[in-house]
Design a binder for these strands. Structure first.
Lengths: 98, 98
DNA sequence: ACAATACTTCGAAACATATCGAACTGTAAA
DNA sequence: TTTACAGTTCGATATGTTTCGAAGTATTGT
């Protein structure tokens, strides 16, 4: 991967709120393994004390960095982690680690 | 690790120039394994087309996030990667990966 | 059709960041 | 002891980011 894409991923995870959002989605994905690893945003917004517009904005940033994949489910928005992206980022950092 | 520290690390690596700086230092560290894994800043500044004040600023940010350790060597500044930090970050991301 | 829910878009305010040039500090070398 | 070099600090500017409230869209339930 080029460093351009890596820095894009890093930027998406550099904001505290956005990182927490991402980690929450990852957590919900694990909990709902049987039902397709989906996380309904409406189920987690309550634990963040920021407005809906801001959540929406952050989700778009995460999606834009290919860190999550979102999909409408009727009235709701479902999100799931894109493992490929975090794996690639991880692979690069691992090179430095050793 | 708390997500606060992780986001701090991510933020430090979220800027393209700063990430490249970090990767360069990592690369030089490997190349100079025998001589204590040090990277002299004066040896790499040439490959970045930004001014010295900006380099100085970015190095401070990297050091502040504990990603690198800097030390004066007479007239020069030597930098080396702090492996512990990147290892910890990596460990957290690995949890999501699987 | 109407109301309610879930989320998005827009515009603006507040704040943070990247970068620069000029001036400064510390070190080494002539 | 001057000069040159490597890097830092300062102040300014331009740009980007986070967040909000208000208004908009889409979908579901009454």
């Amino acid at each position: 991967m080029e460093s351009a894409k890596l820095s894009k991923i890093m930027k998406a995870l550099s904001n505290q709120t956005r990182l927490d959002l991402y980690l929450q989605i990852a957590k919900q994905n694990e909990a709902n393994f049987e039902t397709g690893c989906e996380c309904f945003i409406s189920d987690i917004v309550g634990s963040f004390n920021i407005g809906a517009p801001t959540i929406s904005h952050h989700l778009k940033e995460l999606a834009n960095a290919d860190l999550i994949i979102t999909e409408r489910r009727g009235k709701f928005l479902a999100a799931r982690i894109n493992r490929e992206t975090i794996q690639t980022a991880n692979a690069i950092l691992s090179l430095i680690e050793n």
